[in-house]
Each structure stands twice: as structure tokens, then as C-alpha cells.
Simulated assay, not measured.
Amino acid sequence: MPAIAIRVRTDGAVYLTVTPPAPKLRNPETGEIAKHRETGQPLFTVSLVETYEGRAQVLKVTIPENGLPKNLTVGQAVIPVNLTATPWARLFTADQLSEGVVYRADVLEPVK
């Protein structure tokens, strides 16, 4: 069954970068960098703190290289354009489950 990406509403939320962009590794053993399936662009991850209605959470967001602003700094306010969340789960054994949510955005737009 294909994964279902859920559009995340970003209006009203504030996003601040908490890590600099880092290459997303497809294979940590070889250092191979993951690429966007359609464009072939290298993928990067950036951790963002999202604050909304008095609550905060950290999102690790994957963004293609061409969607990263130049000179992105830690603590910078950004808007993740076309932010989606894709839940996933992997069953290793009958009693060992790993699960989470993958966040992706097309662009990180600096707030002016």
C-alpha cells in the first residue's frame, strides 16, 4: 500500500530552524546522499521548532537542495511551503514495532 502524505496547515504557526541543513543519507555506510525521486535534487534535513497556540514540537523536515534559502541560520524564522506529514510503521518481529512521521516540504521560505 502506498504511503499517504497529509498536508500540514502552517497558517498561524511559527517555525524556527534549530539545526543547520544536513545531507539526508540514503545509505549511512557508504555516505550516499538521498535524492528527490522526480527531480534528482539532493535532499537535506533541517530540524524546525513549530509553535502553535502555546504548544511547541520539533519537526525533522526533508527539503530538496534547491528549496533551501542561501545563508540559512539556526534560529531563523521560516515558512515550510507545501509541508506534508507521512506516517509510517515497520514491524520487525511480532513484538517489535518501529513507527513515526516523515515531514517533507518543497521550500523553506525565510520570513521577512
Rank of each mutant, 00 (worst) to 15 (best):
T17S: 00
T17E: 00
K70G: 13
A13D: 08
K70R: 10
T73D: 07
N71F: 09
D11M: 08
A22D: 12
V46I: 07
L91D: 09
R9H: 11
P69I: 08
L97F: 08
I33D: 11
K35N: 06
Q76G: 04
L68I: 13
P110R: 03
A3G: 11
P20Y: 06
V101M: 09
L48E: 00
V61C: 09
L108Y: 07
V18N: 02
V49P: 00
N71C: 01
D106K: 10
Q96K: 15
L72Q: 00
K24Q: 13
F44H: 05
L59Q: 06
T19I: 00
V101S: 03
L72P: 00
T86Q: 13
V81G: 07
D11K: 10
T62Y: 06
N27K: 09
L97S: 03
A89N: 13
W88Q: 01
W88C: 06
T30Q: 10
Q76F: 00
G67E: 08
R90V: 12
N71H: 12
V74T: 09
L68N: 05
Q57C: 10
T17Y: 02
A34K: 12
Y103M: 04
N71T: 02
E65I: 10
T93I: 03
E32D: 15
G54W: 02
I79D: 09
Y52W: 08
V101P: 01
E53W: 12
P28Q: 11
F92M: 06
I63V: 15
T30V: 11
E50N: 02
T10M: 03
V61N: 04
V107I: 12
N82T: 06
N66D: 15
W88L: 02
K35W: 05
A105K: 03
T51Y: 02
L59D: 05
G12P: 03
A3Q: 07
P42M: 08
H36C: 09
P42G: 04
T62H: 12
G75C: 07
S47D: 11
I63R: 05
T73V: 13
V102S: 15
E50L: 01
K24S: 08
G31A: 10
A22K: 15
P69N: 07
E29Q: 15
R37T: 06
D11N: 12
L97I: 10
A3E: 14
A89P: 04
V46Y: 03
R26Y: 15
L97C: 05
R104K: 14
Y15A: 01
L83P: 13
